[in-house]
Design a protein around this nucleic acid. Structure first.
Ligand code: FES
Ligand code: FES
Lengths: 146, 146
DNA sequence: CTTGTAGTTGACCAACTTGGTCAACAATAC
DNA sequence: GTATTGTTGACCAAGTTGGTCAACTACAAG
């Protein structure tokens, strides 16, 4: 049970784009610097996100990346599905015959219950939600420093 | 987001032990045959489960494995923690300084929310629960065959 | 039309995890 | 002492993760 760092990176990148939504395009180099994500790696992630329609990228000078939709319409679930690889919760998801020997494996429903619970949380949290959370967290840090 | 097959194997093994609780010890070879788990692999899993106090194993002829506790007291969460490796949901669990740069990463709480939800489901399901579920599933299969 | 900028693509990489095997070893019942 | 059964360590192939690099392509400005 593990959240790949790619997903966290991706979310941070989208959050960065949401914060700079007034700019027509944000360069990956800037995101990389601000979010402390290795740039070449970040580029791949942005590419994947673009292919999945979460960001719009434009090349050349003045180029960069921008959110393709309203931050409230982009959920963590989408990011996970985009970047998290197409792994399934357990090997026998769509290959039920491999585990379903003789009398059926009683665990299957539990594993998918788990999957559903995770998806519910992830699909219930948008980039917009996360942005206000992040700002609140930052405010806390600042006030603690005083 | 993935449930390693080890865990499923382990649960199936424990389920098998629970079903044969009247026998003083069940040989891993029998479990292997009944549950279709490669024996050498199963042996390792049983060893781990034994080290974590979930089964009791005895060597020699008449030896084998048995549940170390009441099936109702053994949860899927325990099996997961025992066999699932000590992976954490995201790298920066107990290394918050690595991600907590400048102002804190707002996602951290979401990831642990997810982790908690999973743990709640897993800790809320015991081998005993699963045994009745499995029997019900088997009854369904049998009735469907008639 | 050249030049610089910035995203895209493919090849490649080390480290780690997963699922699994095998042979040798240790305990124990008969 | 012998057969049986769990224990332990070494080893393995395949896949995933996190990451790099060089080449390529699109485009804006001059
Ligand atoms: S073997 Fe497929 S879920 Fe149990
Ligand atoms: S970087 Fe650690 S949770 Fe975001």
């Amino acid at each position: 049970m593990h959240i790949p760092i790619k997903v966290d990176y991706g979310v941070r990148a989208l959050l960065d784009l949401a914060e700079h939504a007034q700019e027509p395009a944000v360069r990956s180099a800037d995101i990389s610097l601000r979010q402390h994500i290795p740039q070449s790696f970040l580029d791949r992630l942005l590419l994947t996100l673009a292919k999945d329609g979460l960001v719009r990228s434009v090349r050349g000078p003045l180029g960069g990346h921008a959110l393709a939709r309203d931050p409230a319409q982009v959920t963590l679930g989408m990011v996970m599905r985009s970047l998290g690889g197409n792994e399934t919760i357990v090997g026998c998801l769509e290959a039920p015959e491999s585990c379903n020997h003789l009398a059926g494996c009683g665990q299957r429903e539990i594993w998918s219950e788990v999957e559903d619970a995770v998806q519910r949380i992830l699909d219930g949290t948008s980039i917009a939600d996360l942005l206000v959370r992040t700002k609140a967290a930052r405010a806390l840090v600042v006030s603690a420093a005083n």
